[in-house]
Computed example of a mutant assay.
Amino acid sequence: MGRFGHEALDRQRQPRLLAQSLSRSACDADAPDPQGHGDGCFRDPDPEEALRAYTEHGAYSQGAEGVKGRLDAGMLADIAVFSRDLLTAEPGDILNDTRCEMTILDGRIVHDLFSAN
């Protein structure tokens, strides 16, 4: 395998290959993909793999896996609640017909679709 160029970039963008090599691939929604492959992280992601890449692996890449990256007692968490289960929904349904119903940041509700405000 090449260490540089398109082949290396392809390996970096495929968390399954990195997981097989005992690495953890983190994703960032703000990271552009120079080759135009989706959001800069995946070509054909498994939903649970994508969730781990944005949460647990992101925390690990920051050296913060002991305090964030999972929904667990005592852990820091920003939470988004969606109108459907993103792990089981069809991708087209997620993109076309899914709403963020609530967002919690630093323990405070900052968006509530159904609040009276």
Rank of each mutant, 00 (worst) to 15 (best):
M1S: 14
G2N: 14
R3V: 09
G5P: 03
G5L: 06
A8Q: 07
D10Q: 15
D10C: 05
R11L: 02
Q12F: 10
Q12V: 07
Q12K: 10
R13W: 05
R13F: 05
Q14C: 06
Q14D: 11
P15Y: 01
P15E: 03
P15L: 02
P15M: 02
R16G: 06
R16S: 11
R16H: 11
L17N: 07
L17R: 09
L18N: 05
A19P: 01
A19I: 05
Q20P: 01
Q20W: 09
Q20R: 15
S21W: 10
S21Q: 14
L22D: 14
R24E: 12
S25H: 07
C27D: 12
C27I: 10
D28C: 08
A29D: 10
A29N: 08
D30G: 13
D30I: 07
A31H: 15
P32R: 08
P32F: 11
P32M: 13
D33Y: 06
P34S: 12
Q35L: 13
G36A: 07
H37T: 05
G38D: 13
G38Q: 09
G38P: 06
G38N: 09
D39E: 13
G40N: 04
C41S: 07
C41I: 05
C41Y: 00
C41G: 12
F42W: 08
F42L: 06
R43W: 12
R43C: 06
D44P: 01
P45Y: 02
P45K: 02
P47E: 01
E48P: 00
E48W: 11
E48R: 14
E49D: 11
L51P: 02
L51F: 11
L51K: 05
R52L: 15
R52S: 10
A53F: 00
A53T: 00
Y54G: 05
Y54N: 08
T55R: 03
E56K: 06
H57M: 04
H57K: 04
H57F: 11
H57L: 03
H57R: 06
Y60A: 04
G63S: 09
G63L: 11
A64W: 11
A64T: 11
E65P: 02
G69M: 00
G69L: 00
R70E: 14
A73I: 10
G74M: 09
L76E: 13
A77W: 04
D78E: 07
D78R: 09
I79M: 09
I79K: 10
A80Q: 11
A80R: 11
A80N: 09
F82P: 00
F82T: 03
F82E: 00
S83H: 09
R84I: 00
R84E: 02
R84M: 04
R84F: 00
D85V: 02
L86G: 00
L87N: 02
T88D: 05
A89M: 05
E90R: 13
E90G: 02
E90P: 01
G92D: 13
G92R: 13
D93C: 02
D93L: 03
L95C: 12
L95R: 15
T98Y: 04
T98Q: 03
R99M: 03
C100N: 04
E101P: 02
E101G: 04
M102Q: 03
L105F: 07
D106V: 03
R108D: 14
R108T: 08
I109Y: 00
V110C: 04
V110A: 06
H111K: 08
L113F: 06
L113H: 13
L113S: 07
L113R: 14
S115K: 06
